[in-house]
Amino acid sequence: MTDYRLVSAGLSDPGLKRERNEDSVHVDDEQCFFLVADGMGGHENGALASQTAVQGFRALRLPDDFEEAIRAAALRMHEVNDRLVRMREETNVSQMGTTAVALLVRGHRFAVVWVGDSRAYILRRGGLFQLSTDHTHVQDLVDQGILSSFEAKDHPMGHVLTRALGVQETVQVDIVEDTIEPGDRFLLCSDGLSGPVPEDVIRELVAEGAPEYAVGMLIKAAHANGAPDNVTAIVVEARDLA
């Protein structure tokens, strides 16, 4: 299914300020598929939303073909959105939704499929590059040239999402794809990590040790910076088969 040996680790932590963990994580080494979901809506509603997203993908058998697998993953995002909208309407809940960011690997190629502001990064040749673009009001202002990246960093509306699963009847799913190089490492994370931890620190820790060790260190770094939100991270390394 892949031209590389994937070594992965994922961990979700409630952080230091939240009573409940509304994040969910899905690591499927067999299907070379990985997902982080960050629920919204408060307590049970947020946790239920992110768990619903993960359950939807656990029940999905992805095709071996790269393009078909991407289409299946994107379609399941839409199906999860439909299910969450129905759940919200049936229970008369005003707020229930989740972000979702997924990594899919086939052969020597990868794709990132996402909705919301949970992020995907790639560590390549010592540099950390963000693959996803946040679906937030502030990111829209940056894209329009109204705000600089520096001004956006601590903007008070930084967490106002423009897209999430379960919020509206229809949702746009974004996809990026590229080829893999030996030694590439991928990071999927909720904003509980990317928010409080500086990107240069994330870069150093993603590169450190085995993926399991790197994930643990990333969670510790979030705690060291106050961990005001739930923290979830998956690190996936592409190693040569030899």
Rank of each mutant, 00 (worst) to 15 (best):
102 A>K: 09
156 P>I: 10
105 V>L: 13
152 A>D: 05
105 V>R: 05
104 L>S: 03
118 S>T: 14
154 D>Q: 11
170 T>G: 05
152 A>V: 03
109 R>C: 07
127 G>L: 12
110 F>I: 01
123 L>C: 06
104 L>D: 03
118 S>Q: 11
150 F>N: 06
152 A>L: 01
115 V>P: 05
164 A>T: 04
147 L>K: 06
169 E>M: 01
150 F>T: 12
163 R>P: 01
149 S>W: 03
159 H>I: 00
158 G>L: 05
158 G>H: 05
147 L>H: 09
101 V>Y: 02
131 L>F: 05
127 G>D: 14
151 E>F: 00
121 Y>K: 09
146 I>L: 11
149 S>M: 05
137 H>D: 06
121 Y>A: 10
133 T>C: 05
123 L>E: 08
157 M>T: 01
135 H>Q: 12
155 H>F: 01
138 V>R: 04
133 T>I: 09
171 V>K: 01
136 T>F: 00
163 R>D: 02
124 R>M: 10
104 L>H: 04
129 F>H: 15
160 V>C: 13
139 Q>N: 14
126 G>Q: 12
112 V>M: 04
162 T>Y: 03
135 H>D: 15
164 A>L: 02
144 Q>H: 08
144 Q>T: 06
131 L>H: 08
111 A>V: 02
117 D>H: 10
108 H>T: 12
121 Y>L: 08
163 R>L: 02
103 L>A: 10
148 S>G: 12
119 R>Y: 06
122 I>Q: 11
135 H>C: 04
143 D>R: 13
117 D>R: 06
161 L>S: 12
170 T>V: 10
148 S>T: 15
146 I>N: 02
122 I>A: 08
170 T>N: 13
116 G>L: 04
127 G>K: 14
169 E>V: 03
168 Q>C: 04
105 V>S: 06
168 Q>V: 00
132 S>I: 00
164 A>W: 00
116 G>T: 10
98 T>M: 07
167 V>Q: 12
132 S>D: 08
161 L>T: 09
153 K>N: 05
125 R>N: 14
141 L>M: 15
152 A>Y: 00
126 G>W: 04
